[in-house]
Amino acid sequence: MARMRYQQALARALRDEMLRDPSVFVLGEDVRASLRGVTRGLAAELGDQRIIDTPISEQAFTGFAMGAALAGHRPVVEFQIPSLLFTAYEPIVNQAAKFRLMTGGQAKVPVTYVVPGSGARMGLAAQHSDHPYAMFAQAGVKTVVPATAADAYGLFVSAIRDDDPVVFFAPAAALGGREEVADDAGPIPLGVGRVHRSGDDVTVVAIGHLVRDALKVAEELAAPDADGGDPISVEVFDPRTIYPFDWAGLAASVRRTGRLVVLDDTNRSCGLAAEVVATAAEELADALVAPPRRITRADAPIPFAVELEVALLPSRAQLADAVRSVAAIGPRGALAQEAVR
């Protein structure tokens, strides 16, 4: 058992898989020098043909990975900047992710696209601050946004072993987080969420680095507030995989709490929170005692000045307000259990 940073867990998962499976290789920009730290030391250890530096040609090296995958390899494509996925969207969504359907199941396309540092990171401005996971989920591409080091390890292993394209977003704001990762840690299946904290009153769905914020808010609200308001028991549910989403896990939580708030770092319009709230409204209406809420990134590009950047990102204060607002509706605690019966 070792306590390690998220970024170290990613590096360990990649190295473990490369040692286990000779068909795994990495390509991307500056991966030998390892600007993002995920591939550090691997070129020296495993050779230049398994850690491949590419020219600045995102469309071509993304499509190249698909060709290598069809020919039996298991490529991992690293993108230094989340917004590069806009350039690579065609080869991922329109080529790799549709190939199996288009060919009637003739082939698998086991490519992992990894962004070790997605989302805003204070001062990188509009073109380096996106966190574009929802647009892959919207296109039906398997999409993972792990929140913690252990989840990053297990889900990266699963993504690499998966026989379909998987986009893996490591949130920049989560990379420094530490967690115990077992020496014999294995894969964590895609599509299975994690309850980080159990609670009875409100389900907070939080994604990626926002899990930490949700846990802080849950902690605050567990104590009576300054005005003598009742404590609120918050359950923090992390889907971990955005597509396929753990709808059963969500339903199990919301059916117990009767309330839902989604904390999501994608734009408000057509974002992931919109999908979660819409699905809950359609499929869990009988369990909801309060209208669901969502706290998201604003519908705007990230401006440069840090206070402007922060103003557009989802915040703990917004989450705490939303949780209080839904908790104020309907019976809670023992009364709620009574109502459910």
């Binding site: 190249f64 990975a65 060709g67 069809l70 020919a71 080529q95």
Partner: peptide, 21 residues
């Protein structure tokens, strides 16, 4: 490795297959 609906999209796929060879 497929006909393709997007002009030139097959090029990098061919290159990846060639590398694999």
């Amino acid at each position: 490795y497929g006909a393709n609906g997007i002009v030139a999209a097959g090029a990098p796929i061919a290159a990846g297959a060639a590398w694999a060879g």
